[in-house]
Amino acid sequence: MSARATTSEALTGFVKNLWAENPVFRALLGMCPTLAVTAAVKPALTMGLAATFVVVCANTLVSIMRHALTPHLRILMFTLTIAVFVTIADLFLKAFLPDMSEVLGPFVPLIIVNCMIIARAEACASKKPLFTAVMDGFGIGFGFTIALVMLATIREILGGGTWFDFRVLPTWWVPWTIMKLPAGAFITLGLMLAVIVHLQRRRQKPPQAA
């Protein structure tokens, strides 16, 4: 494959993962952190970036050693690689962002079992050359971050009247506390999926609309 073809393949993969194959909205992967850390935008963003770091690093490494992988050791190597980078991310948060590390708590180590990352290692990084795998990692990571921040935006604004800790709604706004509770997370995500499915369907059937 020529270098140009690889580059374009990598870029398409990157863009596709951002929205069209968004890990959360389209593939329903990585649901646990999506629901757990999106009560406010700040932890959601931190979580998204931490996951991006892990998926990019894991994809890089898996792609480098893809020729040496034997079938029965594949999953073990994926898990090991991911676990190492998650530990590094966790130590980083503890050292430099202690407040965020406390809010996220065990959800940082739980990135290890985020099926999104292991799915990318399996489906992309273990088959594709380095550059494609790295771009795929960035795409999936940013896609995940976008989804998290979108959900967190809705929940934080409705649940507390703030966005990124800045007050955006007037003080007479009565916060919908349910948005900050687990129940709000499920319902908001459910309704967001519905909106996305609806928009998708409308776009797919332009003749009827015309």
Binding site: M65, L73, L76, M77, V84, I88
Partner: peptide, 15 residues
Amino acid sequence: SWLVLLCAFVFGLLL
């Protein structure tokens, strides 16, 4: 298992 052993060593060092 050379890959696993190598990785375990490198990862250990890194961590």
